[in-house]
Design a protein around this nucleic acid. Structure first.
Lengths: 332, 332
DNA sequence: CGATGCCGTGCAACCGGTTGCACGTCAAGC
DNA sequence: GCTTGACGTGCAACCGGTTGCACGGCATCG
């Protein structure tokens, strides 16, 4: 007769009220504003409530207070290793504040992203939008409906957390210059990615400053396979070192190089970005470390403080550092 | 005066009703049961609704229908590369059915998992529990309150999807035997993991059948570092090949071997499990492919059909296959 | 031409909480 | 001893939808 699995009816506030001989209001307040009523009344209500197994109904609470107790995070692709740590950080911050986290995957498609954000926006208190591929207009439109915090997207007037890879990238270029490289190539990622534009700019700027020649190869997608495929183009530039948009791409490049018989770092140097796989590769990848978990956590904190009434639209910048491992060396 | 960002008040059903000159009920039905009213009335209501920008309030709907339109997935650790594809699959299936996905991270801690599942259970229509580390009692208790589908956990009476790695593992053992290995070692993962027990058993069984000697090393945690650290113990067994609990561990083992000057696969063979990093390593890892995305999708489908009234508690088994890449070869 | 029944729509109760306001009680103040 | 005020509790409206039931109009049937 255990047929009815999963149908655990829990008592309502009225039943608790009746059992405790008080009104609904009192039970409600015993839970949400205990200091408003006598300590003994609270104790009594609580005693009855726990005996009955009462737990406030989240949905009903959400409806009458207008707060869902939920925030959403939307990412271009959960399977991209950059995002899990970020989501984890967001989840931890939300959880700590008693919020739940709704997850949206945009599948790297701006149109889908637009839809997903719209949908999730309607059932949450706010949204964290990571590495959005939408246009500024689209983002602003959503921001008008719902509190919105951006990660790695710099839209004025909106609270945002930016991982400033440019400092780390500059350090990487300096590092390569010191090793004696005179010509390097930036292998770019998704065209509509803010981070990609930032990184390209940083490589160019540092290269110019140090008198290095800087080529570019557009891999476009941030995948292992894209990295493998563009090795030919990378070598064709004549550069002796590559800085890749991210670790995933760098990993593919490494594999492609080794397939062509190139030994890294002796014959070619490679630098990644994000530090998300870097420590678990062999040879371990020299990369720019981005602290994704911090970004996720910070974004949720910003969102919650916005919900708390602080509408300062803060622009929080997170630092990055170069982590030198084993894929960089003096040119052949 | 754009102060009020994020406070987009949307009209209610009553406002639409008033504007359209009909009752709330009619508007409600125009959205939820259009075939119940005249086509022209529907058209008119819809026209007014879109003009006003009306969108049904999810929370209110949830309260009166008793359905949240939301399912949760709880995983031990989002950052473990086994889970993102699985979550992605779950997310896609949920999305397709018009459901949203709430994400819980148990942080590899059964106690936390218990709390998280309890909390999420109360605000969703059902839960997918992936690779749960809880006891059967705890799981059953939750299953009594809320529809629950398990992934990689075999509890009788509960709907569950199991990734049957034993066939793939058996194939791996046969593959190694054919190559000429006579002694292999299983490097185990989390103690409370069902998959781990299954895999250990499968290695033992296949080894016995083929007359191979099988040793075991308990790495316990499924991390890169754990893999590196247990290389000593692995070599001490005298085996010529290792089958690791998962790819992450295998990756660490590979790195540890190379640090000790061992060349893979010439001097030692390694097989992973899950096929989650395997293609993006060099040398590419021979591994058992587990189709995590399928598992996530299937679990959500099972959950939704359960919600739809089908309480058969189906036990769905997903096949695995051995993918031979470049980390296995005849023994030295 | 009146009875029957179907169909589209409206009324009002309900989902399970929250909260502004009113009421009653009791202690302090004059 | 009566007024004043503070405080604890209850009443009832409200959040924004859904839905059982009743009602009225129209077509069909006898």
């Amino acid at each position: 007769m255990a047929q009815q699995r999963g149908t655990g009816k829990s008592p309502t506030i009225s039943e608790v009220a009746a059992a405790a001989g008080v009104s609904k209001s009192t039970v409600s307040r015993a839970f949400s504003r205990p200091q408003m009523i006598t300590a003994e009344t609270v104790a009594h209500v609580m005693e009855v409530a726990t005996r009955l197994g009462y737990v406030p109904n989240h949905t009903a609470q959400a409806l009458s207070t207008g707060r869902a107790g939920t925030v959403a995070i939307v990412v271009p692709d959960i399977a991209n290793p950059f995002f899990p740590p970020l989501i984890r950080g967001a989840q931890a911050a939300a959880d700590q504040a008693g919020f739940s986290l709704l997850l949206g995957d945009a599948d790297e498609d701006p149109t889908r992203e637009d839809v997903v954000v719209g949908k999730l926006g309607r059932q949450t208190d706010g949204i964290v939008l990571a590495s959005s591929r939408m246009t500024e207009e689209q983002i602003s439109t959503h921001a008008e409906r719902r509190p919105l915090v951006l990660i790695n997207r710099d839209v004025a007037g909106l609270p945002r957390v930016l991982i400033d890879t440019s400092t780390g990238i500059a350090a990487a270029v300096e590092h390569l210059a010191e090793l004696g490289h005179r010509h390097l190539v930036y292998v770019s990622g998704p065209t509509s990615s803010w981070s990609n534009a930032e990184r390209r700019r940083a490589v160019r700027a540092a290269g110019r400053r140090l008198g290095l020649k800087v080529s570019a190869v557009a891999a476009r997608r941030s995948t292992y396979d894209a990295g493998v495929q563009h090795v030919g183009a990378i070598l064709d530039t004549g550069a002796s070192a590559a800085i890749a948009f991210d670790d995933l791409l760098a990993q593919g490049i490494l594999a492609g190089l080794s397939a062509r018989g190139f030994v890294v770092p002796e014959q070619f140097s490679v630098v990644g970005c994000d530090d998300v796989l870097a420590a678990t590769m062999s040879p371990p990848l020299t990369t720019v470390s981005a602290h994704g978990a911090d970004a996720g956590r910070t974004a949720v904190e910003l969102l919650l403080s916005y919900l708390g009434g602080d509408h300062t639209a803060e622009r929080r910048v997170l630092d990055t550092t170069l982590v030198v491992r084993a894929t960089t060396a003096p040119p052949a």
